Computed example of a mutant assay.
Amino acid sequence: MIAGLDQEQQRAAQAVRGPVCILAGAGTGKTRTITHRIAHAVASGQVVAGQVLAVTFTARAAGELRSRLRQLGADGVSARTFHAAALAQLKYFAPRVLGGPIPPLVENKARLVAAAASAVGGHPDRALVRDLAGEIEWAKTSLIAPEDYRERAAAADRHAPLEFAKVASAYARYEQAKSDQGALDFEDLLLVTAYSLESHRDVCDEVRARYRYFVVDEYQDVNPLQQRLLDVWL
C-alpha cells in the first residue's frame, strides 16, 4: 500500500492515529501522501472507510481524491468539498434543526449585490459587483457581521472597492435582500450547518458517530468559517 512512497511520505502515511499535519512544498506529493494514508488506515483495519470524511476546496480536487482512493481500494471513503459535505448534512437534518427543508440557494447573487451597490451610491458595473461580492464573501468567511465590518476591515487594512461605510451598508442590504427571499448563499450554507450542529447536541453526536476520521487537503487555505465547521465536526 505504501511501498511506492518515499521515506518521509511513508512516515506520514503510517501515522494513522492522532492529529497529523503534512508540511511540504508544491508538487512534492502531499495529496498522494494523504490518499495513501487514508487507504493504509482502511486496509489495515484501523479505520472504517464509511467513517472517513476527506474535505477539500473544489469539486475537481474532491473528484481527484475520490479517483485516487478508488484506485487504492478505499472507494467507501467520502471525499467532498466543504460546501458539498455541509449541504448533504443540512439536507438530511433540516427537518430536525430547521423544522422543514433547507431554504433555496441564491440563484443570482450578482443581481442582489448590484442592487446593494446601487443603493449605497456605487455604479454597479461588472467590476464593482465582482469586487464587492468578493469583499462580502471575505467578511462572511471571516465571521464578520455587517455592523462590525468597518472596524475589522480597517484593522485588516482591506483594499475594498468602496469606502468601508458603504461596503458595510451594501453588505447589510445584501443580507436583508437575501433574507427577504428566504434564501441562503454558499457562506450561509456553512454557517447554518455549523450553527445547527452547535445548537443541537443530538445531531452533532450523530454526525460525529458517522464520521470518526477527518482529512483536510490544503488545510492552510481553511478560512475561519470553514474552521468553525471543522471544529464542530470534531
Rank of each mutant, 00 (worst) to 15 (best):
I144A: 09
S142H: 09
A86L: 14
H36G: 01
G73P: 08
P104M: 12
S199R: 13
S44V: 11
A155D: 14
E163W: 10
Y92A: 00
W138F: 13
V42H: 06
S44D: 09
A133I: 01
H159K: 15
S169V: 08
V120T: 07
V52E: 06
E218H: 04
E198H: 07
E147F: 06
L234G: 14
I2V: 14
Q181E: 13
L190V: 08
A86I: 05
A84N: 05
C21H: 12
A114I: 04
P103G: 02
D231V: 06
R11P: 06
A168W: 05
P224W: 01
Y171P: 00
L132A: 09
G182T: 14
V77D: 00
S78T: 14
D188W: 07
G29D: 01
V97I: 09
K178E: 12
A116M: 07
V216N: 05
H159D: 12
R158F: 03
V222F: 01
P103A: 06
F164R: 15
A49P: 04
G25T: 06
V113N: 04
L53W: 00
V113E: 01
T58P: 00
E175W: 02
R96E: 14
E64A: 01
A119S: 01
L229Y: 04
P161S: 08
I2E: 14
A85Q: 02
D205P: 06
Q89H: 13
D205N: 14
E135K: 12
S179H: 15
E163Y: 05
D221V: 06
R66N: 06
H40E: 12
E137A: 13
A155K: 15
